[in-house]
Design a protein around this nucleic acid. Structure first.
Length: 456
RNA sequence: GGAGAGAUGGCUGAGCGGUCGAAAGCGCCGCAUUGCUAAUGCGGUGUGGGGGUUAAACCCCACCUCGGGUUCGAAUCCCGAUCUCUCCGCCA
C-alpha cells in the first residue's frame, strides 16, 4: 500500500511508476474518490463536533438538575444527517481502500524500466558452467537412473505437478534444507522460525498476495484458510499490527516450509521433472528493518543466499528485474538463477525483494524511535528453493555412469560422497531403499539397494 | 465436539451510561540530585485521519478486539463475529 498523502501530493510520480509496471492502478478513480471522501469527512466531522458539544452540555445540565430540552431537541435533529454522512464516509473509505490494496508498489530509482524478461539486466555471474565429455542428462533421467525419482507414482497419488522422491534424492533434499538452515542461523544471524503452513486471508493481504494472486492460492473453503505459497507470508505477519522498539531492528528470520502454488497461469509449462511444482520446499529469509537500512539489508540477504550456491559450488547469475517483470509489490528484485546443464536453462532459485513500507502499511508493522512512529521496511528472499537446487546438483554433478557427486559441504548433513544407481528395484511397486546406506542384497529379499561409493 | 471465562494504551491492570483518551504501576524520554553502579524526586510520554502552518503551535473527528444496535450521549448496555484461556470428551 502506498502512502495516501504521497499519492495526493505527487499523482504524476505515481502515475509514471504505475505505467512502468504496466498498471494503471486505477489512479484517476482513486483521486476522485479521495476528493469526494475528504469533502464528506469535513462535513461529517463538523456535525459530529456539534453533537459532541451538545451531549456534554446535556450531561452537565442534567448533573446540575437543569432543563436540557432545547439541546436534546437539537441533538436529536442532528442524528439523521450524521447517520447519512457516516454511511457515505464509510462507503467512500472502503472504495478507496479496495483500490489502494490493488495498487502496485513503485519501483526504486535504480530499477531498469522495461516490460519483459528481456529487459532484465545481469547484475553478476559466478562460477563456470561445467563441461562434460558426454551429453549431460536432464535431472529426471538422472533421478530415474538412481531409482529415486518417481513421477508416475506422484501422479497416481496427487496428479500432475507433484513429485515423489525416494532414498538418495529424499535424503539429498533433506540434507540441503538442513544445511541451509544451519548456515543462515549459525553464520548469517537469522532466527529460525517454525511457521504455520495455513494462514488467514488477512495474512495474505498484508503481504500483497491477495487480492491479486487469488487464482494462485490453494484455499480450504470450509475453514477459510489458505495454504501458504511461501514462508514469507507467516514470517511477515509475525509482527502484524505491532509497534516495535526501534532498537530491536533489524529482525532477521529464516524458516523452512513447503510452498503451495496452483500455477494457474503456467499450465503446460515445465511439465517434466522438478522445475515447476504445485508443492515444493523452500528455506526463506525475511528481514524487518529501518527505511535507511533497507537497501543494505537487501544486499545482505542476497549475499546470504548466494553463499548457499557458492558453498555448493554451483554456477549462477544474478538478475536485476526490470519494472515490468518484477512483482507488483516489490520496489527492487534480484533473482538468483542456477545453471542447469541437463535442461540447458537458468533456473530461478531465489527472488530477493525489498518492499519498502508497502507491506508494512498493509499489515500495520511499525517501529518507534526518538518518540516517532514509522513504518518498517520489509524484505525477503529465498535462501533457497529446493527442487531447483536439487536439479542443479544432479545436473552439474552428474557423471557418465549415471552417478552424482555430492558437494562436500553436505557431507556432515548425512549424504554419502556420491549418489549411485540403485539396482534390483522392483517395478511397478515402489520399494524404498535405506538412505545412503551401503547394504548388500540378501537372497530372497526383493528390496535391494546398493549405493555405490566412488571417489569424486 | 460439549461447558465455561476473557479480550482496555509499548506492557501489567482499574473502570461497567455523561468533563474517560481512559486510574495506578512498569517501561521510555527530559530535568534535578547523587564518589561510580544503583537509587530517589519532579515533569512528560498512545495511534490514525481531516483542517491549519514555511515549519510548528493550534482546532476538529475517530479509536478501550472487530462489526452492528439501543441512547441526546457507549470502554461501560444489547446482538453477531474473531481470537485467547480453562475443564470434559475425542485424536496424531
Amino acid at each position: 500500500m502506498l502512502d495516501p498523502a504521497f499519492i495526493r501530493k505527487f499523482p504524476d510520480v505515481v502515475r509514471k511508476g504505475f505505467a512502468d509496471k504496466g498498471e494503471s492502478g486505477e489512479l484517476d478513480w482513486y483521486l476522485q474518490l479521495d476528493k469526494d471522501h475528504r469533502a464528506v469527512l469535513t462535513e461529517k466531522e463538523q456535525v459530529a463536533a456539534r453533537q459532541n458539544q451538545l451531549s456534554k452540555l446535556i450531561g452537565m445540565k442534567t448533573g446540575k438538575g437543569e432543563d436540557s430540552t432545547p439541546e436534546r431537541a437539537e441533538a436529536d435533529g442532528l442524528k439523521a444527517a450524521l447517520k447519512l454522512l457516516e454511511e457515505r464516509d464509510s462507503v467512500l473509505k472502503q472504495d478507496k481502500l479496495r483500490i489502494q490494496m490493488r495498487m502496485p508498489n513503485l519501483a526504486a530509482d535504480d530499477v531498469p524500466v522495461g516490460k519483459t524478461p528481456e529487459d532484465n539486466t545481469v547484475a553478476a555471474t559466478w562460477g563456470e558452467k561445467p563441461t562434460f565429455d558426454f551429453t549431460p542428462k536432464p535431472h529426471w533421467e538422472i533421478g530415474a537412473g538412481l531409482g529415486a525419482f518417481h513421477a508416475e507414482t506422484a501422479g497416481k497419488i496427487s496428479g500432475a505437478g507433484f513429485s515423489l522422491m525416494t532414498g538418495p534424492l529424499a535424503q539429498l533434499e533433506r540434507a540441503l534444507w538442513n544445511y541451509m538452515l544451519d548456515l543462515h542461523t549459525r553464520e548469517h544471524g537469522y532466527t529460525e522460525v517454525a511457521v504455520p503452513y495455513m494462514v488467514k486471508e488477512h495474512a495474505l493481504e498484508g503481504c500483497g498476495q491477495l487480492p491479486k494472486f487469488e487464482p494462485e492460492m490453494y484455499r480450504m473453503k470450509d475453514d477459510d484458510l489458505f495454504l501458504i505459497p511461501t514462508a514469507e507470508v507467516p514470517l511477515t505477519n509475525i509482527h502484524r499490527q505491532e509497534i516495535l522498539a526501534g532498537e530491536r531492528l533489524p529482525i532477521r528470520y529464516c524458516a523452512f516450509s513447503p510452498c503451495f502454488r496452483r500455477e494457474a497461469g503456467a499450465a503446460g509449462r515445465d511439465t517434466r521433472g522438478l522445475i515447476r511444482m504445485h508443492q515444493f520446499h523452500k528455506v526463506e529469509l525475511m528481514v524487518y528493518t529501518t527505511p535507511e537500512d533497507g537497501d543494505a539489508e537487501q544486499m545482505r540477504i542476497r549475499t546470504n543466499a548466494e553463499a548457499v550456491l557458492r558453498n555448493l559450488k554451483l554456477p549462477y547469475r544474478v538478475l536485476l528485474l526490470c519494472t515490468g517483470d518484477m512483482s507488483v509489490n516489490s520496489r527492487r528484485t534480484w533473482d538468483l538463477e542456477l545453471w542447469a546443464p541437463g535442461v540447458g536453462a537458468w533456473l530461478e532459485v531465489s527472488s530477493i525483494s525489498t518492499f519498502g513500507d508497502f507491506q508494512a502499511r498493509r499489515s500495520g508493522i511499525r517501529f518507534k524511535r526518538a518518540g516517532k512512529t514509522e513504518y518498517v521496511h520489509t524484505l525477503n528472499g529465498s535462501g533457497v528453493a529446493l527442487p531447483r537446487l536439487v536439479i542443479a546438483i544432479l545436473e552439474n554433478y552428474q557423471r557418465a555412469d549415471g552417478s552424482v557427486v555430492v558437494p562436500d559441504v553436505l557431507r556432515p548433513c548425512g549424504p554419502p560422497a556420491a549418489l549411485g544407481p540403485l539396482r534390483g528395484l522392483m517395478k511397478p511397486t515402489l520399494r524404498v531403499p535405506p538412505c545412503g546406506q551401503l547394504r548388500r542384497s540378501r537372497p530372497g529379499r526383493c528390496v535391494v539397494a546398493r549405493t555405490r561409493f566412488e571417489s569424486a
